[in-house]
Write a protein that binds this DNA or RNA. Structure first.
Lengths: 170, 170
DNA sequence: CACTTTATGTCAGCCTTGTTGACTTTCCAA
DNA sequence: TTGGAAAGTCAACAAGGCTGACATAAAGTG
């Protein structure tokens, strides 16, 4: 151990070794490689339907919060309305998503998955969950708790808010 | 299948509750939101230089393995040579990366960061490490161990090979 | 009622970063 | 000497980000 990297200085306690630049770099690379795996299975399925990750994200969060408004989705996904609209238009035209005018506020559009949309969502999420389930099982419950804990800390506060909102809500 | 279709059904042992569809969904969303945070700081810096994430990735792995070949980088990054070439060309033209003809095999190009390249890399990685360090510190060493363990399981076997190669190498 | 704000949609155009395909040059190795 | 691997280039294209401008309808406000 000793040095490693450039910015190493002796640390006070041995317990802080996990904060060295080298450990952090490994964490960064783990995130990079893991994210590729994380998206690989849905990506393959999406290709068959000529959709992309953007469609997957929209479908996922509509499934998660049926009746969500366009604006809400915009905030969660962190893209422009033009970008999201392109994706939603395709999903609506293809009959996967239904857009209903709001009852209280008729300016709003509430988004729902159709039967076909539910099916695609199921196919995508089952593929993605399959990999996650295997990873969780191999790593064990304590590792999973740590995994979730660190991920939550990595988020921007605003994203964390979205994440935690989902946690409680339903 | 029994459970984990749509909702929750009793599982065999209480320890398996972390494998429910809902827990998996939370993990999936955590990955999504965390990855956004993970890339946010470097993205901001890159914008100032009119570079993108692709440039960051190239710079990161050249820093990690100085003298690596284009082909090696291609395998790690998982993109086409045309795509990587565009990025490398820009970095070379801007004087951040140096491409040296191989001595044994003169077809190969070995890639190195120049002084300027080192500087950009440092700026980017310090920003990214800063967030990771804070997350690690808040979560603690045991959580970090779990985090890394799960991420490694999520990777494709080939990516895991790359990741582990880096782990040992140097 | 008039005015403003909000939610949404849409058009046009731009950028990055990925793709495929075709082709060339270099040069190692059988 | 010839085949093929490594690298680079050119062209064309697509997804999915972005900005800016503008339209519409509905809600809110004075």
């Amino acid at each position: 151990m000793s040095d490693r990297g450039t910015g190493q200085t002796p640390v006070s306690g041995e317990t802080l070794l996990f904060l060295t630049d080298d450990q952090l770099r490994r964490g960064i690379e783990a995130m990079f490689f893991a994210y590729r795996g994380f998206t690989a299975d849905p990506d393959r399925i999406l290709q068959e339907y000529s959709y992309g990750r953007a469609h997957h994200r929209a479908v996922h969060f509509i499934k998660r919060s049926p009746g969500t408004t366009v604006n809400n989705l915009l905030n969660i996904l962190g893209v422009t309305k033009q970008s999201l609209n392109r994706v939603l238009r395709a999903l609506i035209e293809d009959g996967l998503v239904e857009s209903r005018v709001g009852k209280q506020d008729r300016r709003e559009r509430h988004l729902y998955l159709t039967e076909a949309g539910q099916e695609l969502e199921k196919e995508l999420s089952e593929a993605q969950r399959g990999r996650m389930r295997a990873a969780y099982r191999d790593a064990g419950p304590e590792a999973v708790a740590g995994f979730r804990q660190v991920l939550e800390q990595i988020m921007d506060p605003e994203m964390r808010r979205h994440f935690q909102t989902f946690k409680e809500g339903s």
